[in-house]
Write a protein that binds this DNA or RNA. Structure first.
Length: 750
DNA sequence: TTTCTCTCTATTTTT
DNA sequence: TAGAGAGAAA
């Protein structure tokens, strides 16, 4: 039954015996199916006990999907299965073995935004004023080092890294160690060190896991690879699935080379390719294949389908961003009128800011839509406030949680009082809570009463279940009355109530419903499948690790809007790829280096391969960017796609009295020469000139020009007059440059 | 403490 | 354009 619905290549992968394997799974080739079938097959044929499998995914969503697919094939007790994200699996190991690595049992996980606010606080309290670096730079420095397995102590100072960044790394490390805080990269690094430095333990896990399954292997970073490496024992077989052409997260440390490293070290030339695509029609795949061929150093694969060519891809030129949005709306109306479900239509864009204009157009046409990638539930301000109170219950010495809510809702504790308090705590080497009694003055009294509030919450936590405790906490802390007080904060109040619901659901799932929130499970120490925890603690960990999808509205009848990154792994009947312009897609920050450009190309590849039946790619000759009108050439990627898969269109939009009338014309046009009459329709104005005459040449904004070194480009902006006149030019190969018109020899192209 | 005003900056993002 | 953060005024 498990093998019935698989094609030959899929079956070969699923039933592979006694060896490591690298499965190159193209977009839409049934990757998830193969992974789930593999696991089900191993269990069904009794080749392995469920407790001997480790399955790693990148998102919680993917893990859930995998579990539900496996359950459809075999009946198993999933609680004994080690499945989850890298972070959740490391977390699981750390909870079991925290005693072995000097980690407190109460260690708390901090998410990216907690980490950032901690960094800001440390910058302030240590009077660090290096104007060169923003808090985010410190954060990036710390995380990227951790993700390469580098602690402060092992940073090579010879490397050209700044002393201040380095010193701060130490400061941050010390603080986290002292306060039992573990950030996301620390979860991995700690767990890596646990296995690395503890031979016996490592040997036990090497024996335990006879099969390791890894999803999205192209997205692993160096530390994740090393962690897996440590888990591979003599009798362990790794089944890694990935697609180097869909690696789009190098910017956050993912290393595609892990695929070839794995292949060389373990899989030894045995690559299984899944190339039959079940998602898209031929023209769409042809376009994707012809585009991605421009990348070098691929492991190589070509997608094919037996479903026929389908429709040509429609490449559409618009005069500006507003026009593009209106054209999309018009087209979507037609599609819906002809029977396409709205939720099977996706609008993709390179950067989030592009959604605004599109949303506006959809909204005014009464087409319902959902935007993915907004604030998630557990990242919302009010939820984080409530969680800070809960963290203080779990650990009253959590200074960050203390600082977050000591004056929220406001209790008359100002910046001055807090400064005093911090100073006092630091000089006595105490936590804020332990030094609360000593704060003097009016603020001191307020702080004392806050401290009493926390004591009261802790007292009640032993009597109440988790949902009851949360309810009590948000009432007693004043959060509820604060959010009740103003009308437009109603939604935030709802979210607080939603948190109670989340805890209720969580309690049921964890089967800990009648246990008071702060009571420990009794645990056999070092039992590998048992976790030392309390309901409150595991709820808090869970809320950091599983910051679930944002609460969005009506799924079923809404058009879906998201970035190309967010679309990875999804599929839609109809896809609109918008903003196919030089500087935007490929993004100007990425085009100067080959690796950057190749990642942009893979991103376009991902976007194209989301489409099942209909694919539109649109561009606008000009768009409003950061309050200025920006002119662009069409994306080079459009020229890299084989022309026989494409049909080009051009749309002129004219607006009168706020109502839009669309005139469509089908033309064979050269996309690198925006026609001049488009300029008349661009909205917005800038303080710069629309034209400039230098050496008898008349330069216009929006004009195509050629420079002897930089090649072809388009004039984006003209600044100044006469001999000091400058032109800002967006060059196809070199990005944005500002040139003096009297010096630079710019040729006007017709 | 809160609110207003000015300045700065600007991909992609899961855990 | 729009949001965040800092600093000054109320």
């Amino acid at each position: 039954m498990i093998l019935e619905e698989l094609n030959k290549a899929q079956k070969a992968a699923v039933t592979l015996e006694s060896s490591h394997a690298l499965v190159l799974a193209g977009a839409g080739s049934g990757k998830t199916k193969v992974l789930a079938s593999r696991l089900a097959w191993l269990l069904d044929t009794n080749q392995v006990d469920i407790s001997n499998v480790l399955a790693v995914t990148f998102t919680n969503k993917a893990a859930k999907e995998m579990i539900s697919r496996v359950l459809r094939m075999v009946n198993i007790d999933t609680r004994r299965l080690w499945i989850g994200t890298f972070h959740s699996l490391c977390h699981r190991m750390l909870r079991i073995h925290c005693d072995d690595i000097n980690l407190s049992r109460n260690f708390q996980i901090i998410d990216a935004s907690d980490q950032l606010s901690l960094i800001k606080q440390l910058i302030k309290s240590n009077n660090i004023n290096d104007l060169k670096y923003q808090p985010k730079d410190f954060q990036r420095f710390i995380n990227s080092h951790k993700e390469n397995g580098i602690r402060f102590i092992s940073v090579n100072i010879q490397r050209n890294c700044n002393r201040n960044l380095l010193d701060f790394y130490k400061l941050y490390e010390d603080y986290c160690f002292k306060h039992d805080l573990v950030d996301f990269s620390e979860l991995l690094l700690r767990c890596y060190e646990l296995l690395k430095n503890n031979e016996n333990l490592r040997a036990r896990y090497n024996d335990k896991f006879s099969h390791i399954l890894i999803d999205e292997f192209q997205d692993t970073n160096n530390l994740q690879y090393s962690w897996i490496d440590l888990l591979i024992g003599r009798k362990t077989f790794v089944f890694a699935v990935g697609d180097d052409d869909q690696s789009i997260y190098a910017f956050r440390g993912a290393n595609v080379d892990n695929m070839s490293s794995f292949e060389k070290t373990y899989a030894k030339g045995s690559i299984i390719r899944l190339e039959q695509n079940y998602r898209s029609f031929g023209h769409i795949l042809g376009a994707a294949n012809s585009l991605i061929k421009h990348n070098k150093g691929r492991l190589g694969k070509t997608l094919w389908t037996d479903q026929g060519d389908g429709e040509l891809i429609r490449v559409v030129e618009n005069s500006n961003d507003v026009g593009e949005a209106h054209w999309i709306v018009e087209e979507i109306r037609n599609l819906i009128r002809n029977g396409t479900d709205a939720h099977k239509i996706a609008i993709l864009y390179r950067s989030n800011m592009q959604s605004r204009v599109i949303e506006h157009a959809l909204f005014s046409s009464n087409i319902s839509y959902i935007v993915y990638g907004g604030l998630r539930f557990f990242e919302r301000q009010e939820v984080k406030h409530a969680l800070a109170y809960l963290r203080l219950i779990a650990n009253p010495n959590d200074d960050n949680a203390w600082l977050r809510v000591v004056n929220f809702p406001s209790r008359g504790i100002g910046a001055r009082t807090i400064e005093n308090h911090l100073e006092l705590a630091k000089s006595n080497n105490l936590s804020l809570r332990d030094s609360a009694k000593q704060v003097s003055g009016r603020g001191g009294i307020s702080i004392l009463s806050f401290s009493n509030l926390i004591d009261d919450l802790i007292l009640n936590s032993t009597k109440l279940t988790l949902p009851e405790l949360i309810n009590y906490t948000i009432e007693r802390s004043g959060l509820v009355s604060y959010y009740k007080s103003e009308k437009d904060l109603y939604e935030r109040l709802e979210n607080l109530k939603e948190l109670i619901t989340a805890a209720t659901v969580f309690s049921i799932e964890e089967k800990c419903i009648s246990i008071p929130a702060s009571c420990s499970f009794s645990v056999n120490k070092h039992t590998e499948d048992e976790i030392i925890s309390t309901p409150l603690l595991s709820f808090l960990s869970n809320s950091s690790l599983e910051a679930n999808e944002s609460l969005s509205g009506d799924h079923a009848s809404s058009v879906q809007l998201m970035t190309v990154h967010a679309s990875k792994g999804l599929e839609f009947k109809v896809v609109f790829i918008t903003g196919a312009e030089e500087g935007l897609f490929p993004h100007e920050n990425s085009i100067l280096e080959d690796s950057g450009l190749e990642e942009e190309r893979r991103l376009m590849y991902v976007a194209i391969t989301r489409a099942e039946e209909k694919l539109y790619i649109s561009m606008a000759n000009s768009r409003m960017l950061r309050g200025q009108v920006r002119y662009s050439l069409s994306s080079r990627f459009l020229n890299e796609i084989d022309a026989n898969h494409i049909q080009r269109y051009k749309f002129e939009n004219i607006y009168k009295n706020n109502s839009s009338r669309l005139f469509k014309e089908k033309l064979n046009i050269d996309y690198n020469k925006p026609s001049k009459n488009n300029l008349a329709h661009t909205s917005g104005s800038t303080s710069s000139n629309k034209s400039s005459i230098v050496n008898d040449k008349l330069f216009l904004v929006g004009q195509s020009v050629n420079h002897n070194r930089f090649g072809d480009g388009i004039i984006v902006k003209l600044i100044g007059e006469g001999s000091s006149a400058q032109a800002q030019v967006n060059f196809q190969k070199y990005g944005m440059k500002t040139l003096a018109l009297t010096i630079a020899k710019l040729e006007i192209k017709n």
